Measured scan of single mutants.
Amino acid sequence: MPSETPQAEVGPTGCPHRSGPHSAKGSLEKGSPEDKEAKEPLWIRPDAPSRCTWQLGRPASESPHHHTAPAKSPKILPDILKKIGDTPMVRINKIGKKFGLKCELLAKCEFFNAGGSVKDRISLRMIEDAERDGTLKPGDTIIEPTSGNTGIGLALAAAVRGYRCIIVMPEKMSSEKVDVLRALGAEIVRTPTNARFDSPESHVGVAWRLKNEIPNSHILDQYRNASNPLAHYDTTADEILQQCDGKLDMLVASVGTGGTITGIARKLKEKCPGCRIIGVDPEGSILAEPEELNQTEQTTYEVEGIGYDFIPTVLDRTVVDKWFKSNDEEAFTFARMLIAQEGLLCGGSAGSTVAVAVKAAQELQEGQRCVVILPDSVRNYMTKFLSDRWMLQKGFLKEEDLTEKKPWWWHLRVQELGLSAPLTVLPTITCGHTIEILREKGFDQAPVVDEAGVILGMVTLGNMLSSLLAGKVQPSDQVGKVIYKQFKQIRLTDTLGRLSHILEMDHFALVV
Rank of each mutant, 00 (worst) to 15 (best):
P2V: 09
S3L: 15
E4R: 05
P6F: 08
P6D: 10
P6Q: 09
Q7G: 08
E9Y: 05
E9L: 07
E9H: 10
E9C: 14
G11V: 10
P12L: 04
P12K: 10
T13E: 09
T13D: 09
G14M: 12
G14S: 07
P16K: 12
P16M: 09
H17I: 13
H17D: 06
R18Q: 15
S19F: 10
G20H: 12
S23H: 10
S23V: 03
S23A: 11
K25E: 10
G26Q: 04
G26M: 07
G26S: 10
S27E: 13
S27N: 13
L28F: 06
L28G: 10
E29T: 12
E29I: 12
K30Q: 11
K30D: 13
S32K: 07
S32E: 13
S32N: 05
P33A: 06
E34L: 04
D35F: 03
D35Y: 13
D35L: 06
K36P: 10
K36H: 12
A38V: 13
A38R: 09
E40W: 12
L42N: 04
W43S: 06
I44V: 14
R45K: 06
D47K: 05
D47A: 05
A48Q: 10
P49A: 10
P49Y: 05
C52W: 03
C52R: 00
T53A: 11
T53K: 10
W54C: 06
Q55V: 12
L56Q: 10
G57M: 08
G57P: 09
R58T: 10
P59N: 11
A60I: 11
S61W: 10
S61F: 10
E62D: 15
E62F: 07
P64D: 08
P64S: 04
P64T: 02
P64N: 07
H65K: 07
H65L: 02
T68D: 10
T68V: 13
A69C: 13
P70R: 11
A71W: 05
A71Y: 11
A71N: 11
K72D: 09
K72N: 11
K72E: 11
S73K: 11
S73T: 14
K75H: 06
K75S: 15
K75F: 06
I76P: 10
L77T: 05
L77G: 07
L77K: 07
L77M: 13
P78S: 15
P78E: 06
P78F: 07
I80K: 01
I80Y: 01
L81Y: 06
L81R: 07
L81P: 07
K82V: 10
K82M: 10
K82S: 07
K83M: 07
K83I: 10
I84R: 08
I84M: 12
I84W: 08
G85L: 02
P88Q: 08
P88Y: 03
M89S: 01
M89H: 01
M89A: 04
R91P: 09
R91G: 15
I92Q: 01
N93A: 05
N93R: 05
K94D: 03
K97V: 07
K97P: 07
F99G: 14
F99Y: 13
G100V: 09
G100W: 08
G100N: 10
L101R: 00
L101Q: 00
K102F: 02
K102N: 15
K102T: 10
C103A: 05
C103F: 06
E104H: 06
E104I: 04
E104R: 05
E104L: 04
L105V: 15
L106D: 05
A107Q: 07
A107I: 04
A107H: 06
C109A: 11
E110C: 00
F112T: 06
F112I: 06
F112G: 02
N113A: 03
N113Y: 01
N113L: 00
G115F: 07
G115K: 08
S117A: 06
V118I: 06
K119M: 00
R121K: 05
R121A: 01
I122E: 01
I122S: 03
I122D: 00
L124R: 06
L124N: 11
M126T: 06
M126S: 02
I127V: 12
I127L: 10
I127A: 10
E128L: 12
D129Q: 12
A130T: 07
E131D: 12
E131F: 01
R132P: 09
D133R: 10
D133H: 11
G134C: 07
G134D: 07
T135H: 11
T135N: 13
T135E: 04
L136M: 08
L136C: 13
K137Q: 11
P138D: 07
P138R: 15
T141L: 14
T141S: 11
T141I: 13
T141Y: 08
I142R: 01
I142D: 01
I143G: 04
E144M: 00
E144V: 06
P145F: 00
T146S: 03
T150I: 00
G151W: 01
I152K: 00
I152H: 00
I152S: 01
I152Q: 01
I152P: 01
G153Q: 01
G153M: 06
L154W: 01
A155F: 04
L156Q: 01
A157L: 03
A157Y: 07
A157E: 06
A157S: 14
A158H: 01
A159T: 15
A159I: 04
A159Y: 02
A159P: 07
V160S: 09
V160F: 02
R161T: 04
G162F: 04
Y163F: 06
Y163D: 01
Y163S: 00
R164A: 07
C165E: 01
I167E: 08
M169T: 07
P170I: 01
E171G: 05
E171S: 05
E171C: 04
K172S: 04
K172V: 02
K172Y: 03
S174A: 06
S175T: 13
E176Q: 07
E176I: 00
K177N: 02
V178A: 11
V178Y: 04
V178K: 07
V178R: 10
D179H: 08
D179K: 04
V180Y: 04
L184V: 03
G185Q: 00
G185R: 00
A186T: 05
A186P: 01
E187H: 10
R190K: 14
T191Q: 01
T191G: 01
P192C: 09
P192K: 06
P192S: 10
T193L: 09
A195Y: 06
R196N: 11
D198M: 06
D198G: 08
S199C: 10
S199W: 02
P200G: 07
E201A: 05
S202P: 04
S202F: 06
S202R: 03
H203W: 03
H203N: 09
V204I: 05
V204H: 09
V204L: 15
G205Q: 12
V206G: 08
A207V: 02
A207I: 00
A207T: 07
A207Q: 00
W208G: 06
R209N: 09
L210D: 02
L210I: 07
L210W: 04
E213G: 14
I214L: 07
I214T: 03
P215E: 08
P215N: 04
N216C: 14
S217E: 06
H218D: 04
H218M: 09
I219R: 07
I219Q: 02
L220D: 00
L220H: 02
D221T: 07
D221V: 02
D221A: 04
D221F: 08
Q222R: 02
Y223T: 01
Y223I: 02
R224V: 05
R224T: 09
R224E: 09
R224W: 03
N225K: 01
N225T: 04
A226G: 06
A226F: 03
A226R: 10
S227N: 15
S227G: 05
S227V: 06
S227K: 10
N228F: 00
N228Q: 01
P229K: 01
L230V: 14
A231D: 08
Y233T: 00
D234M: 10
T235W: 09
T236V: 02
T236L: 06
A237Y: 01
D238A: 11
E239L: 00
E239A: 00
I240R: 00
I240G: 00
I240W: 02
L241M: 14
Q242N: 14
Q242S: 06
Q242C: 15
K247S: 03
D249T: 07
D249F: 02
M250A: 05
M250P: 00
M250K: 06
L251Q: 03
L251T: 04
V252K: 09
V252Y: 10
A253D: 09
A253I: 03
S254E: 03
S254W: 02
V255E: 07
V255M: 10
G256Q: 00
G256T: 00
T257R: 10
T257C: 00
G259Y: 02
G259M: 01
I261P: 01
A265T: 13
A265H: 04
A265Q: 05
R266K: 07
R266W: 02
R266M: 05
K267Y: 05
K267C: 14
L268P: 01
L268G: 01
K269E: 04
K269M: 08
K271D: 04
K271H: 13
C272V: 15
C272I: 06
C272H: 12
P273Q: 08
P273K: 14
G274N: 10
G274P: 04
C275W: 08
C275L: 07
R276N: 15
R276V: 12
